[in-house]
Design a binder for these strands. Structure first.
Lengths: 231, 231
DNA sequence: GTTTCAAGAGTTGTGTACATCTAGGGGAGG
DNA sequence: CCTCCCCTAGATGTACACAACTCTTGAAAC
């Protein structure tokens, strides 16, 4: 069809551009490149992505519907703040949904997926050996979540799980500096090892329950740390 | 502040208008006033609500994100079709979420809510006495769902439940003409009576489980009927 | 008669100017 | 010095004109 020498994307649908911008902004928010409270300028974003304000506004509206930004007329578009107590309900729901994934038509991961998880564990060990890095932890966590999400066969459940994950992922990164990073790396590695064992057995039900357990414990550790910080 | 003689809404925020239009269009789609496959004209809607295409487009984009319409460049905005087999995953998820509502910080309904449920049962009896009406059934069902939803204390769970409900509510109305309307009214009344009993006992956990049971049986009846129609 | 292609109508997507709103600063009055 | 009010800067919301895209229709070529 087209004679593009590099790849296969010369048409570039409007939707593709929109999704691309959305993904970039979402990642920036979740990785705290756009910290809570930051004001996003529609014009600056339009300039960065070489479009007008119109498509940028569509993306920002979508981010607002998902709770990542707050658009206020006459004021600006503000990255929403994340507070542990406000996200407690989201966490409780995530626990239950994690346990559900094994019951609703789970997807058996292929050999490549297992290798990717093994690679994540290896990367975790490399990180643990050197200087511990918050950002690296967040990236590993997000990559592992992607593997878990791929095992959720029920499409609406997968979409919901991802949405809730993006809502809560920031709080981890925010509290990480106040926590024992060594302990978090260790717990995260343990989770991946246990889940990998269940995956090898094809026991997705157990994957869901393991996931539930570790989300819960991670939440409890944050609660304890946040409680200590407030005293 | 203002001297409006009638009510208290002269400012009319942009968001309020947007939410209002969204609710109207969503109800029209869910009540099949806009049947599946119908093409919505942005200009006509803009004219009807006395605004330009811009705010209309925002609403349509939101409806698309929730799966109720499909926007195609150069073609139009089409009301999505609903097929029972495609919605099976949504139904399975709704079952599990219904059972969850009792476990995640449920809200005890007040006396007024109990009276409203009693009124719904009375309305159901009135309908059953006269000529059975599909639309009346759909409205009763939606009103009852609103009461159930109000008992869901976990806010993200409530939002998700409502979203999934709007995605599946149309299929019931669509299949209703091929089903035993008398039986559906009877089953629906039975569900309300049972749930009312649990509500009176303050047993929201049982409300969730009852809800789960009846959603499941309703789904099974539709499956049987749809299967019979295909033969 | 069949096929193909081009032109047109009609739709959504984008760009841009302007309307509307909010927050903050500065000056007059007390 | 404090308080209040107005005004301006800068943000989002809206309206409208135009670009990009799809489908249909009809006529011309074979």
């Amino acid at each position: 069809m087209s004679a593009s020498p590099t790849g296969t994307e010369p048409p570039v649908t409007a939707r593709e551009r929109s999704d691309r911008i959305y993904g970039i902004l979402r990642d920036r928010i979740c990785m705290l490149a756009y910290p809570p409270g930051m004001r996003l300028s529609e014009e600056e974003l339009a300039e960065e992505f070489n479009v007008s304000r119109t498509p940028v506004r569509r993306v920002l509206t979508r981010l607002e519907n998902e709770g990542l930004v707050s658009i206020v007329h006459g004021v600006g578009t503000l990255v929403t703040d994340v507070e542990l107590d406000e996200l407690a309900q989201v966490y409780h729901l995530r626990l239950e949904l994690a346990a559900l994934m094994g019951r609703l038509s789970p997807v058996q991961p292929d050999a490549a997926a297992i290798e990717r998880i093994e690679a994540l564990i290896a990367r975790c060990d490399e990180q643990s050996a050197g200087e511990l890095d918050h950002m690296a932890f967040a990236r590993l966590n997000m990559a592992f979540f992607a593997e878990i999400s791929a095992m959720i066969g029920n499409q609406p459940l997968r979409e919901i799980s991802e949405r809730l994950y993006y809502q809560t992922s920031r709080i981890v990164l925010k509290l990480l500096p106040t926590m024992n990073l060594q302990e978090e790396f260790s717990a995260f590695r343990q989770e991946m090892v246990e889940i990998l064992a269940a995956v090898r057995l094809g026991d997705i039900v157990s994957v869901g329950h393991l996931r539930r357990v570790h989300i819960s414990m991670s939440f409890q550790r944050m609660l304890r740390r946040a409680g200590a910080a407030y005293r």
